[in-house]
Design a protein around this nucleic acid. Structure first.
Length: 1007
RNA sequence: ACCCUCUUAGCCCAAUUCGGCAGAGGCAACGGUUUUAGAAACCGUAGAGUGUGGGUUCGAGUCCCAUAGAGGGUACCA
């Protein structure tokens, strides 16, 4: 019987679906195991071979844990709201719902073909109203909460209102906006409804506030920090500007410390934790207030603000301050600017505010700034210090103002040098240092020129400086985080509507029974003419409460990360209509035991999902502080692009023959090796080639293509150009181009001519990101069709360690496919002579015996069980594939067709290659799926060797082997070894200084 | 600029928490069997002293220091 993977795979995929083999039980006496893949966004391009890498790994784990007796939750669904579908909708007018559904169908079809053991009954889609009803519900909980620093958790807003009513906000210790005004209980009671709402808004964890956002005009929306790469949008690469907008935001900063601390408890890679730590960016420092000298130039704006507060991590350098710099967006800029400086400052502020992020980042080295004309007083010396504006100071970090210490801070130094400002030195470095060239930024050295700090070491000086600053009441110790509040609204159509309506300009949340607030239909997916979000186009979309009235809904929608921040909980109870998930089930499934996904989510999704998890815990909805205990980042699979080389005819046929050249419409491609042989290089663009080389090339072309135009004897030399063109990798095998397929690939190549190398056209290659435009995308469908899903699964694992990035290369796949055939053959050993069955398809029935296995066969099996178990437990899937190969090689060698060996082997292999193992398992007479068969345990007894061949080293150099019984003690080994003649020969009569013996490892004799 | 990861045969990769004979596997190569030929299959052969320089050790691919190269992440964070 032949191994027909197409039939077998179809058969078992159907079996699993109809028998619901992988259904997770809601309650069980078995221990639970929750293995989750990061939520995919169903893109129009479908899956390429890189996507399934993580899914295969998690599937192996899920299947393995089922064998090990766990109740496994292994779900899949779609993060189906998002920009690409909406961009497509804008371009084509097609509803994003329709494209999204088509894309999902394609994803599903592709995933099914790989044989994943997902419990599809639990599938969720973020764009499904049944799902986003609960995303909206969670939003409302966050809206109705504040962060109490005393209890260090989120609480319902009602406890804050009670406090306001009793004592105002003076005693409230909460995470709130910086500009929150103080009020008393009496004030509160006197507040209008609107004033109350505004006051509470400073405390709500989901709040409407003014914030600088990444505004992308091309996409017509704001983007999260992690959606901006190099100053342009991650999707589409459109420019992004900074803009002050009224926005829904999430006070994730309230959780900064907990997000940081929680990392310690997680089994994630150090690099991932490190990037989260860096993103959160905790820094301990001091705030210091500098009094503005004289009167404000524009006191009418705000008279009670007469100081500039800065944040510094180096209070010890306070005597080295030679100027203060404000961010261009700082509120005080226009208040401190003098009349003379007004024009230049306004110009500067205008320009830097309107510079896009990209420009700003592009000129990091370009220093710009302008003097305001005003001064602050130094709090200790009373000296006047100029106030500057400079865009190297960020508005959103710290207080948006810095005390510049050019001698001891790199950026301040550059700024001061550029504008010719003083560089007062206050620390004597412990090393040679040129202050004119560089700042001394190390936290090392002795303080000088610093009054009460003189003579102190930096660390002591920092402490002392803080004391003095606090004593003078001009500042205090402060912890700053780089993490910013997360913008939560976007002016787009394809997202969850924010469940808020406005009554007299006051935002109110919908009540639970009014959810979901369903996304309305619109005629176009673009913003309105007056720049309102697309939802403004929805006809008659108004909030009409039972008690009457008609109110406007919030028009922005939620960002992509909303739905994905809690989906792992929904899988636990995917169809619950009355709660986001039942407490009972959430308690049972607890958190994710293994989470697999790409490292691109390090600072986006993985921070948000931790934030929401902590929030839901604070409110008592769940019992876990962290969503996923163990997390693995699978490496990226890169594409291997192939190139062909086309001669630019003009550069080989000189101008004299221009007629003929124009009429010659064939394209000529040269094999890579020939180019390198002649020119020694592949990059030939406008290269002044010497006549000899070009003639060599010309003669070669003429030889191969007789109808090629003649060269004019003395044509003028033009620059030689050979163009490098991407060619579809699917028509290239082992760098050899399939010429026929190439000619058919595109109309223009129909008549292409080739200069071959040894009869073959050799392509060049390069490793790059897999992308459509580079023609290097390999679809899992093609591989599956050619080799089968089991081979695809094994091969993806076989490529290398899961976490490492690697280029896709099909070169080795025949080895894996051959392994499966070899395994198959073990079950069909010819009954006649015990030989191997004819692989060409001779129809022999399965032939497995019940006879006793030999010691050698048992050893092979148990060695394999042991290795595979260890490999899976440490996620080393690539090594287990080779271990299976070794095992099958050994069993083939032994002509083993014994049930006692082959059955346990099948179970071990089934997480990796589920279809072939199901088929063989059923051919062996089993009626139940192999998926639930208990995983075999290895027996150490079979692995013990009677003897061990000891390598004998002299001074660490291995000289000979001596076979000794494995049971010998150290003393016995020494005695035995020293008695050997060969050993004595190497000793040359000397007495060894030392003999190191490690039983069953090595003997080392030191002479 | 900073942080993280990696570097072993022509190529992909092993050598496990805890240093103990550098190789178990696959591709490619070479030789053979089968085949009209090709493909496929099967059997067999050969091939590196671990990027570089130093150190610790009886013993280093493995630990430490320095350095080079590749990949990834972050980026004026006071």
């Amino acid at each position: 019987m032949e191994y027909n993977f197409t039939e077998i795979e179809k058969k078992w995929q159907k079996y699993w679906a109809t028998h619901k083999t992988f259904k997770a039980e809601d309650s069980s006496i078995k221990p639970k195991y929750y293995v989750l893949d990061m939520f995919p966004y169903p893109s129009g391009a479908g899956l390429h071979v890189g996507h399934p890498l993580g899914y295969i790994a998690s599937d192996i784990m899920a299947r393995y844990k089922r064998h090990k007796g766990f109740n496994v939750l292994h779900p899949m669904g779609y993060d189906s709201f998002g920009l690409p579908a909406e961009q497509y909708a804008i371009q084509t007018g097609q509803h994003p719902k329709i494209t999204t559904e088509q894309n999902i169908a394609r994803y599903r079809e592709q995933m099914d073909k790989i044989g994943f053991s997902f419990d599809w009954d639990r599938e969720v889609r973020t764009s499904d109203p049944e799902y986003y009803k609960w995303t909206q519900w969670i939003f409302i909980q966050i809206f109705n909460s504040w962060y109490n620093k005393n209890s260090d958790k989120a609480e319902n807003i009602s406890s804050l209102i009670n406090e306001f009513e009793a004592n105002g906000n003076t005693n409230v210790n909460a995470v709130c906006d910086d500009y929150t005004k103080q009020f008393t209980a009496a004030d509160w009671k006197a507040f209008s409804e609107k004033e109350k709402s505004d006051a509470l808004m400073h405390y709500r964890i989901a709040y409407l506030g003014e914030a600088y956002v990444n505004w992308c005009p091309a996409l017509g929306t704001v983007l999260a920090n992690d959606e901006v790469k190099d100053g342009v949008s991650e999707r589409g690469g459109h420019p992004v500007e900074r803009k002050l907008m009224k926005q829904w935001s999430m006070r994730i900063t309230a959780y900064a410390q907990r997000l940081l601390d929680g990392l310690e408890t997680l089994d994630w890679t150090e690099s991932l934790k490190e990037s989260q730590r860096y993103w959160i960016g905790r820094s301990e420092g001091t705030s210091v207030k500098f009094k503005i000298h004289g009167s404000l130039s524009h006191p009418e704006v705000n008279t009670n603000l007469n100081e500039i507060e800065v944040f510094t991590t180096r209070p010890d350098t306070i005597f080295g301050v030679s100027f203060v710099t404000l961010a261009p967006e700082h509120d005080l800029v226009n208040k401190v600017t003098t009349a003379e400086q007004l024009a230049v400052v306004e110009e500067y502020v205008y320009v830097s505010k309107n510079r896009s992020e990209r420009e700003r980042q592009a000129d990091v080295t370009k220093i710009s700034g302008v003097f305001t004309g005003s001064y602050v007083e130094h709090p200790f010396t009373g000296k006047q210090i100029p106030i500057w504006v400079g865009d190297y100071v960020l508005a959103g970090y710290g207080t948006g103002a810095v005390m510049a210490v050019p001698a001891h801070d790199e950026r301040d130094h550059k700024f001061a040098k550029h504008f010719g400002l003083d560089l007062p030195q206050v620390i004597t470095p412990n090393k040679e240092h040129d202050f004119d060239k560089d700042a001394w930024g190390e936290k090392e050295g002795t303080l000088i020129n610093s009054d009460f700090l003189n003579g102190l070491e930096v660390k002591a000086a920092i402490k002392k400086a803080i004391e003095e600053i606090e004593k003078k009441k001009i500042g205090c110790k402060k912890i700053n985080f780089r993490l910013r509040d997360a913008v939560f609204g976007r002016q787009r159509y394809w997202g969850e509507p924010i469940p808020i309506y406005y009554k007299n300009d006051i935002p109110y949340a919908l009540s639970d029974n009014e959810l979901p607030l369903v996304l309305p239909e619109v005629d176009k997916y673009l913003p309105t003419e007056d720049g309102e979000p697309p939802l403004a186009r929805a006809k008659d979309w108004k909030y009409r409460p039972a008690e009457g009235g008609e109110f406007e809904y919030e028009l922005s929608t939620m960002p992509g990360w909303a739905g994905s921040s809690w989906y792992f909980l929904r899988y636990m109870d995917a169809h619950n209509g009355s709660e986001f998930a039942s407490k009972k089930l959430m308690n049972y499934w607890n958190n994710v035991d293994l989470y697999i996904g790409g490292s691109e989510h390090a600072t986006g999704h993985l921070l948000y999902v931790r934030f929401w998890t902590k929030f839901l815990k604070d409110l008592g909805y769940i019992n876990i502080e962290e969503p996923a205990q163990k997390l693995i980042n699978q490496g990226m699979i890169q594409g291997r692009s192939s190139f062909v080389y086309r001669i630019k005819l003009a550069s080989i046929i000189p101008l004299a023959n221009v007629e003929e050249r124009i009429n010659y419409d064939k394209q000529v491609f040269i094999s890579k090796n020939i180019i390198t042989k002649i020119f020694g290089d592949l990059k030939l663009e406008g290269v002044k080639a010497d006549n000899v080389k070009r003639d060599t090339l010309y003669n070669l072309i003429k030889e191969n293509i007789p109808d090629f135009p003649d060269k004019d004897a003395e044509g003028p030399l033009t620059a030689l150009t050979i163009q490098t063109l991407n060619v579809d990798v699917n028509i290239v095998e082992n760098d050899i181009l399939d010429i026929e397929k190439f000619r058919n690939w595109r109309e223009e190549y129909k008549t292409a001519e080739f200069i071959l190398d040894d009869g073959k056209y050799i392509c060049g290659y390069e490793v790059e990101k897999m992308s459509k435009s580079k023609y290097n995308v390999v679809s899992p469908d093609d591989i599956g069709e050619k080799f089968g899903a089991d081979t695809l699964r094994l091969y993806e694992m076989f490529l290398g360690p899961l976490e490492q990035s690697k280029p896709w290369n099909t070169n080795g796949i025949t080895g894996v496919s051959g392994f499966l055939k070899k395994l198959w053959r073990l079950f069909f050993l010819s009954p006649a002579g015990g030989g191997v069955a004819n692989a060409t398809g001779e129809d022999i029935a399965i032939n497995v015996t019940d006879s006793e296995p030999t010691k050698g066969e048992l050893k092979t099996l148990h060695k394999t069980i042991k290795k595979i178990t260890e490999d899976i437990e440490r996620f080393s899937f690539n090594t287990s594939v080779s271990n299976f190969m070794i095992c099958v090689n050994e069993l083939t060698e032994a002509k083993c067709n014994k049930r006692a060996i082959l059955e346990p082997l099948l179970i071990c292999l089934s997480p990796y290659a589920p279809h072939i193992t199901e088929e063989l398992w059923s051919l062996l007479g089993h009626k139940e799926s192999i998926a639930l068969a208990p995983f075999p345990m290895h027996n150490e007894e079979y692995l013990v060797d009677d003897s061990f061949s000891y390598p004998i080293s002299f001074n660490g150099k291995m000289r000979l082997n001596i076979e000794l019984p494995a049971t010998l003690s150290v003393e016995e080994i020494e005695k035995e070894v020293m008695s050997r003649e060969e050993v004595q020969k190497y000793l040359e009569g000397k007495t060894p200084k030392k003999i190191i013996i490690v039983p069953k490892k090595i003997v080392n004799i030191v002479i």
